[in-house]
């Protein structure tokens, strides 16, 4: 790891100022992706700005309309929140399946969405539930937020402060985890939302995407059989040592079936 200047500001405003002032500043939340990236010398930031000192980024608020999770809230705390489990059980279950226990004890929702790893779990929940990402500057709809592989709508120095999820009448997430890394080779989040059924896929492509054909099928009949015959094309999907694009395309249908069945 190359060395860097370390900052631990106490407010979002100070954090944003520190990143802007640095020649190549990087924000750090849980560090579960950033630290391995630095260790491999894949990044060489001049400054690392640790958000762990910004206490008002931590916390979970639940009301009748949905769940708002502070950006620095850890996966383990979302997974074990009785309020989240009551309001959107699929979201608590998703958080409880990220990485392993030790990763969940450090990794945060804000870090996960800002990083936008193609195999991260949270993006599927955000897009399927129609969540809103709040930053220090604006509110961004989840579908406009995730742009591509490790790319988001965030501008330099813009900081995710919270994510708000509306409740859904039905929802479930099913993934086929890589047996070693636990990253989703394919993960499918299905939700029956106020604007109809939504199906979001992570792990399969460069970034999270919706499967409109499955959503239309579910609008006609909410059942695992409805999505069983909907295939997604392999073209453009990820192909690597873990799975070919064709296999990932196949898994999308399998995981969608399981998710609809689990959602009930």
């Amino acid at each position: 790891m190359y060395d860097f200047a370390y900052h631990k500001p106490k407010s979002v405003a100070d954090a944003a100022a520190a990143v802007k002032k640095a020649s190549d500043g990087k924000l750090m939340s849980g560090g579960m992706t950033l630290i391995p990236t630095l260790k491999q010398r894949l990044a060489h930031p001049s400054d690392v700005v640790d958000l762990a000192g910004v206490s008002d980024l931590v916390g979970i608020k639940v009301d009748a309309t949905g769940v708002t999770i502070g950006a620095m809230t850890k996966h383990a705390d979302v997974a074990s929140s009785a309020d989240v489990a009551r309001a959107i059980p699929a979201l608590a279950a998703l958080a409880g399946g990220i990485g392993d226990r030790q990763v969940r004890n450090r990794g945060t929702i804000g870090g996960s969405v800002a990083n936008n790893d193609p195999a991260a779990d949270y993006p599927a929940a955000l897009v399927a539930l129609g969540a809103t990402v709040t930053t220090n500057e604006r509110k961004i709809a989840a579908e406009d937020f995730f742009k591509g592989m490790f790319e988001t709508a965030l501008k330099d120095g813009e900081i995710v402060t919270s994510v708000s999820f509306p409740t859904a009448t039905k929802a479930a997430y099913m993934k086929f985890p890589n047996p070693a890394s636990r990253y989703a080779m394919v993960g499918v989040f299905v939700a029956q939302t106020a604007s109809g059924p939504r199906v979001a896929v992570t792990g399969a492509g460069p970034a999270v995407f919706r499967v409109k054909a499955m959503e239309e099928a579910l609008a006609k009949s909410w059942s695992a059989d409805a999505v069983a015959n909907v295939k997604v094309p392999a073209e453009g999907l990820n192909s690597d040592i873990h799975a070919s694009a064709e296999y990932r395309a196949h898994l999308v249908t399998v995981m969608a079936k399981r998710a609809v069945a689990a959602a009930g």
Partner: peptide, 29 residues
């Protein structure tokens, strides 16, 4: 492994298990 997968480096930090190969010493201040 030094890549946060194997768990040989697990310690307890403020009551939660964590992989100490993926935490900066300054984060444990």
């Amino acid at each position: 492994c030094d890549t946060s997968q194997c768990g040989a480096c697990v310690v307890d930090v403020d009551g939660a298990s964590a992989k100490s190969c993926t935490i900066l010493a300054v984060q444990a201040e």
